[in-house]
Amino acid sequence: MRDRLPPLRAMRVLEAVWKHGSIAAAAENLNVTQSAIGHQLRQIEEWSGVRLMIREGRRVQLTDAGESLALVVHRGFSGIRHEVDRLTMRERLPVTLAAMPLVAQNWLLPNLPHFHERHPNVALHLATIQSDQPMTPEPDVTILFSLSGDLPAGAKPLVNGKAIPVCAPSYLARHPMQNDADILTARLLQDEDSRMWSDWANAAQCAVPEPPTKGLLYLAGSNLLTDAALAGHGVAICREALIASYLRDGRLIALSQTAIDTEACYYYTLSNAGRKQSTVSQVVSWLGALAQRIPHR
C-alpha cells in the first residue's frame, strides 16, 4: 500500500513557497536554486496526481489545492517546531495542568506562589485549553466545565459553577440598583451564551428583558465578559467561584442572592500518564485546597 505521506523535503518546500509568496523567495530562504524548488513541487504533483501550481508567464502561484495543502503542512510543521522548543521543558518532567482561560487566569495564576511554597520540587506546566479543542499531548490534569453537573467517567468535581449578576462599583454609583427588577433595567452585558439573562430573570421571578435596540454588545468568552464588568460597562452574569477575589477586594459587587446554573461545576480529569505520576497527586491535592478556600455565600 502506498504511503499516504508525500516526501517531507517536498512538503518543506511547499510550505516555504506558501509562506514567502514566490519560488524565488522560497529558494532564497532555503538556500537552494529555483529549479530545485520547482522539482520538489512537481514531485508532489506526480505523487498526488493533483495540480499544485499555475504558471502565468514567469510567475508561478499555488492553486487552491496547493494553498490548502500548504496551510495544513504549515500547521503540522508549526506543531513540530513548537514541540521541539518545549523539549528542554519536558526533560524536567513537569506536571501539565490545563484549564479554560478564565480558570487559568483568575484562579490558578494568582495562587501559584501557594503551590510553589507547598511543593517547591514539582515542576508545573500551566496551559490553557478550550473544552472542544483537545490538546496534544494530553495534559496530565485538565480542568473543564459542566453546565449540567453531569461528569464524564473518572472525572472529579472541583468547584461549583453557579453564576450571579455583578458590576463594578463605578457602574453601581452611576446606576443605583435596589432589587432584582432594577438589575434588569441596567445595561446587561452578554456573552455568546445569550440564554443566561433570561434564565436569571426567570429565577428572579421577573419579566425577561427585551434586547436593547441600540448598543447591543456580545462578548466572546468569559474573559472579555469579566473584563467588561470590571471596566464598568454594565452588569454581567459571572461564575461566582472565578470572581471570588474580585468580590473580596471590591472590584466587583454581587448585586443579588439569586443565582443560576446552580448544578454546574468545574471538574478535573487525569490522563493515563497523569495517573502514573506521583507528582500529579500533589497538584490535585493543591487544587482541592484551593477549592476549599473559595468563600460560599
Rank of each mutant, 00 (worst) to 15 (best):
E56T: 14
S170G: 09
E210Q: 14
A65L: 04
V166N: 05
E240F: 03
S256A: 02
H39L: 13
Q257N: 14
S278H: 13
R195D: 04
K162L: 14
A163S: 15
I243H: 00
S198N: 10
S78C: 08
P295S: 11
Q257H: 15
A173Q: 15
N223Q: 12
V159W: 07
G274K: 03
P6L: 03
S281W: 06
A155R: 07
A236V: 09
P137C: 08
S35E: 12
L290N: 03
D249T: 05
R90W: 11
M196A: 08
L151T: 01
P209C: 01
Q292L: 10
M1E: 08
K19N: 09
R81F: 08
H74R: 14
Q105F: 01
L109D: 12
K214N: 09
A25T: 07
I23T: 09
P157S: 12
G79F: 06
L41T: 01
L87Q: 13
L41H: 02
P94N: 02
Q61E: 15
N223V: 12
K276H: 07
H114N: 15
T88G: 11
L124D: 11
R75W: 07
Q282S: 13
L224V: 10
C265F: 02
R239A: 05
V13W: 00
A220Q: 14
T142C: 02
S78T: 13
L225A: 11
P134R: 06
L52V: 01
